[in-house]
C-alpha cells in the first residue's frame, strides 16, 4: 500500500464520517441525495461480493465492512428515521436510478476483463460508482443553499477519487503489469464529474464566502 492509496481511503472514510455526523448528531439530511446513497449501497454490495471468499488483508476486509455498513445505515436513516426523514428534500431529489443503472449494466456486459458473474458485477460496480454522484450534484444545483457539512462531504468524496488516480499512477510506475484500463477510465470519468463542484468550492474558500452554485 502506498501513501496515495492510504490518503484516498482515509478521505473516503472521512467523507462517510462527516455524512454520518450530520445525520446522526444534527438529525438532518438536508441537501443529501437519497438516490446517490442508494446507488452507493448497490455499488458496494456488487463490488464486495467476494468479501467472504477472497482475503487480501485485515485492513481491506475491515474497510469493506465499514463502507457496506455505513452506506446501508445512511440509507436506513434517510428512509426510516422520522426526524431525519423529515429533513429530506424529496421533491428536489428526483433522479431515476434506472437511468444510471441500465447503461452501467449493459456496459458491464459488453466491456469487462472476464465474462464471469463476479467479474461482470465487479465491473458494473466500477461504472456505477463513476456516475453515482450525479443525483447528488443535481440536487445541489437545485437547492443551491449548501451547508458546510454537505459541502465537506462532497469535497472529501472528490478528494478520495483524486488520491486514487495518484495511486494508480504510482503503481503503474512501481509495479510490473499494473495496467487496468476499465478501472482507470471509469475512475477518471468519476473524478471529472467533481471538477465543476471543486471549482466553486475553492472559489468560495478563497473568498471566504458560503458555497453557492450558479443556477
Amino acid at each position: 500500500m502506498n501513501i496515495f492509496r492510504l490518503a484516498g481511503d482515509m478521505t473516503h472514510l472521512a467523507s462517510v464520517l462527516v455524512l454520518l455526523l450530520k445525520i446522526h448528531t444534527i438529525k438532518s439530511c438536508a441537501g443529501v441525495s437519497l438516490k446517490t446513497q442508494e446507488l452507493y449501497v448497490i455499488v458496494f454490495a456488487t463490488r464486495y461480493l467476494d468479501i467472504f471468499t477472497s482475503f487480501v488483508s485485515i485492513y481491506n476486509s475491515l474497510m469493506k465492512l465499514i463502507f457496506l455498513g455505513s452506506s446501508f445505515s445512511i440509507v436506513w436513516y434517510m428512509r426510516y428515521h422520522k426526524a431525519v426523514h423529515r429533513t429530506y428534500d424529496r421533491e428536489q431529489d428526483t433522479f431515476r436510478h434506472w437511468f444510471l443503472m441500465l447503461p452501467c449494466i449493459l456496459l458491464a456486459l459488453l466491456i469487462h476483463e472476464k465474462f464471469t458473474f463476479f467479474e461482470v458485477m465487479w465491473t458494473f460496480s466500477l461504472y456505477l460508482e463513476a456516475v453515482a454522484i450525479l443525483p447528488q450534484l443535481v440536487l445541489l444545483q437545485r437547492t443551491r443553499n449548501i451547508d458546510n457539512l454537505t459541502g465537506q462531504y462532497i469535497f472529501l468524496l472528490g478528494g478520495y477519487r483524486g488520491f486514487y488516480i495518484l495511486n494508480w499512477i504510482y503503481r503503474y510506475f512501481t509495479e510490473p503489469h499494473y495496467v487496468h484500463w476499465i478501472t482507470w477510465i471509469s475512475g477518471l470519468v468519476q473524478t471529472l464529474l467533481y471538477a465543476d463542484f471543486f471549482y466553486y468550492y475553492f472559489l468560495s474558500w478563497k473568498n471566504n464566502k458560503k458555497l453557492q452554485l450558479p443556477a
Binding site: 492509496r5 487480501v56 469493506k64 463502507f67 465487479w122 503503481r171 487496468h180 478501472t183
Partner: peptide, 10 residues
C-alpha cells in the same frame, strides 16, 4: 498477477 492486483483496492 494481472487479474488480482486491482482487487486489492477498495
Amino acid at each position: 498477477c494481472v487479474q488480482e492486483s486491482q482487487k486489492d483496492e477498495l
